[in-house]
Computed example of a mutant assay.
Amino acid sequence: MLYIVLPAYNEDEALPVLLEEIEQSCAAIPHQIVVVNDGSTDSTLDVVQNYAQTHGNVHGINHEQNQGLGAAINSGFQYVLSRNGGKNFSENPDQEIKAVPDIVITMDADNTQPADHIPLLYREICSGADLVIASRYVQGGEQHGLSIGRRSLSWGAGKVMQFFAPIKGVRDYSCGYRAYRLKLLAEGTRQYGPNIIKSKNFSGMVELLLKVAPYAERVSEVPLKLHYELKKGASKMRIWPTILGYLQLIYQLKRKKWSTVEWVEE
């Protein structure tokens, strides 16, 4: 089964379009969509509830208050893992390789990441990868509509992380459009607990990558054409808190302690 986890904060304009595009792109793939409404103040919750009533494969999780991207991703993972609670991923790994594995894809709910890449990520996992990143920095990858500050932050974060925490096959450390073999997330949860992401800002996606990649035998990237100009409304990312979050990640990495500092807020 393919699970698509969408963290959503004030995305009532973009979310309906994205949900329709996911259904079109994944028509041939059995899939479930998990939308985590992270304390939205617009009508995002109504959108999710309406879709859940008319589409049996759409499921909503609601945070009464905004908790941040990391907490939303954690909630989505916990929901998916709870639906697979009786499965022993280590019981017969060879059998899983031959069969279609359980896969989790995370992507933004603002419709800037094209849903037609989902089958590409899906096929890459089915072909043997444990973790696949939709990357702006491989051949064929592009990004449009980002400010110079945002471009510099993403590019610089990747270079810094490549120096301090190199992961074979990874250039794009911060993009959250990824596919995970479910057993990889299960192992990460066993190691770090249900709230695997501790960061309270957008550096949480880098934190997640650093935590689960060591348990992946194969990590790969596929090209992504990011169209940020399609985003409705203002960006939720704050550059300086995110930079501080990256610095905290490096500190945690070198100290081998993931929960001993008070993570900076967004």
Results as ranks from 00 to 15, higher is better:
residue 3 Y to R: 03
residue 3 Y to C: 05
residue 6 L to M: 03
residue 8 A to P: 02
residue 10 N to T: 07
residue 10 N to C: 08
residue 10 N to D: 10
residue 11 E to I: 11
residue 13 E to Q: 11
residue 16 P to A: 05
residue 16 P to D: 08
residue 18 L to Y: 06
residue 20 E to Q: 09
residue 20 E to H: 10
residue 21 E to C: 06
residue 21 E to S: 11
residue 21 E to D: 12
residue 23 E to R: 15
residue 24 Q to K: 14
residue 27 A to I: 14
residue 30 P to S: 09
residue 30 P to D: 09
residue 33 I to G: 01
residue 34 V to L: 13
residue 36 V to K: 04
residue 39 G to E: 12
residue 39 G to F: 09
residue 40 S to H: 04
residue 44 T to L: 13
residue 47 V to Q: 00
residue 48 V to S: 01
residue 48 V to D: 01
residue 50 N to I: 08
residue 51 Y to F: 11
residue 53 Q to I: 10
residue 55 H to G: 15
residue 59 H to A: 06
residue 60 G to S: 01
residue 61 I to K: 06
residue 61 I to Y: 09
residue 64 E to D: 14
residue 65 Q to F: 10
residue 67 Q to R: 05
residue 68 G to P: 00
residue 73 I to Y: 05
residue 76 G to R: 00
residue 79 Y to N: 06
residue 80 V to K: 00
residue 80 V to D: 00
residue 80 V to Y: 00
residue 83 R to G: 06
residue 84 N to I: 07
residue 86 G to A: 06
residue 89 F to G: 03
residue 90 S to P: 08
residue 91 E to A: 14
residue 92 N to S: 12
residue 93 P to D: 11
residue 98 K to A: 10
residue 98 K to S: 12
residue 100 V to W: 13
residue 103 I to R: 01
residue 104 V to P: 00
residue 104 V to K: 02
residue 104 V to S: 01
residue 107 M to Y: 06
residue 107 M to R: 03
residue 107 M to W: 03
residue 109 A to Q: 04
residue 113 Q to F: 10
residue 117 H to T: 15
residue 121 L to H: 03
residue 123 R to S: 13
residue 123 R to N: 12
residue 124 E to F: 05
residue 126 C to S: 12
residue 126 C to A: 12
residue 129 A to T: 04
residue 137 Y to M: 09
residue 139 Q to P: 04
residue 144 H to E: 15
residue 145 G to H: 07
residue 146 L to A: 06
residue 148 I to E: 15
residue 148 I to W: 11
residue 149 G to V: 10
residue 150 R to G: 06
residue 155 W to V: 14
residue 158 G to H: 03
residue 160 V to I: 15
residue 161 M to A: 02
residue 167 I to K: 00
residue 168 K to V: 07
residue 175 C to P: 02
residue 178 R to Q: 07
residue 179 A to S: 04
residue 180 Y to G: 00
residue 182 L to A: 11
residue 183 K to H: 08
residue 183 K to N: 07
residue 184 L to A: 02
residue 184 L to N: 01
residue 184 L to H: 00
residue 186 A to L: 05
residue 187 E to I: 03
residue 190 R to S: 09
residue 191 Q to C: 15
residue 192 Y to M: 13
residue 196 I to G: 00
residue 198 K to W: 05
residue 200 K to Y: 10
residue 202 F to H: 04
residue 202 F to E: 02
residue 205 M to R: 11
residue 209 L to M: 12
residue 210 L to V: 11
residue 213 A to L: 09
residue 216 A to M: 04
residue 220 S to N: 10
residue 234 A to S: 12
residue 235 S to I: 14
residue 236 K to Y: 12
residue 236 K to V: 14
residue 237 M to W: 07
residue 240 W to A: 14
residue 240 W to S: 14
residue 240 W to K: 15
residue 243 I to R: 02
residue 243 I to A: 04
residue 246 Y to R: 05
residue 247 L to E: 11
residue 251 Y to K: 11
residue 253 L to P: 01
residue 255 R to W: 06
residue 257 K to E: 13
residue 263 W to F: 14
residue 265 E to T: 15
residue 266 E to H: 08
